[in-house]
Simulated assay, not measured.
Amino acid sequence: MWRAADDLLITDLDDELILMQASRGEMFGLNASGRVVWQALPAHEAQLAAALQQTFGLDAAQAQADVAALLADLQRRGLVQRS
């Protein structure tokens, strides 16, 4: 199960979701597909891919690849963690 890190500030700018890790002073922007994944947290990777499929009409392989890439990037930045 993936979940958001605890120490984040989140700002919704309509076309972008901004995540800020206060302890590091870093910001990260999520586009529309990133927003769908983020708003579905906490969830398993398969549930996140299903959310992308339903929202954007992607095939299963593309949705899984996109979610895996996003989660890897967010985890590297300390914005999500696996529990």
Rank of each mutant, 00 (worst) to 15 (best):
G29E: 14
G29R: 12
G29M: 10
N31S: 11
N31P: 08
A32R: 12
S33T: 09
S33H: 11
R35G: 04
V36M: 04
W38A: 05
Q39G: 11
Q39K: 13
A40Q: 15
L41K: 04
L41G: 08
P42E: 08
P42H: 07
E45C: 06
A46P: 08
Q47C: 10
Q47D: 15
L48I: 01
A49R: 00
A49D: 00
A50S: 13
A51K: 08
L52G: 01
L52N: 03
Q53C: 09
Q54H: 13
Q54D: 15
Q54G: 14
F56P: 07
F56E: 06
L58V: 01
D59H: 13
D59T: 09
A60N: 10
A61W: 02
A61F: 08
Q62K: 13
Q62S: 12
Q62A: 13
Q64D: 14
Q64P: 04
A65T: 14
A65P: 08
V67R: 01
A68F: 03
A69E: 13
A69W: 09
A69M: 10
L70V: 08
L70W: 04
L70F: 10
L70D: 08
A72G: 13
A72C: 11
A72Y: 11
D73F: 07
D73E: 15
D73Y: 06
L74G: 01
Q75I: 01
R77C: 04
G78T: 00
G78W: 01
L79M: 12
V80R: 00
V80G: 02
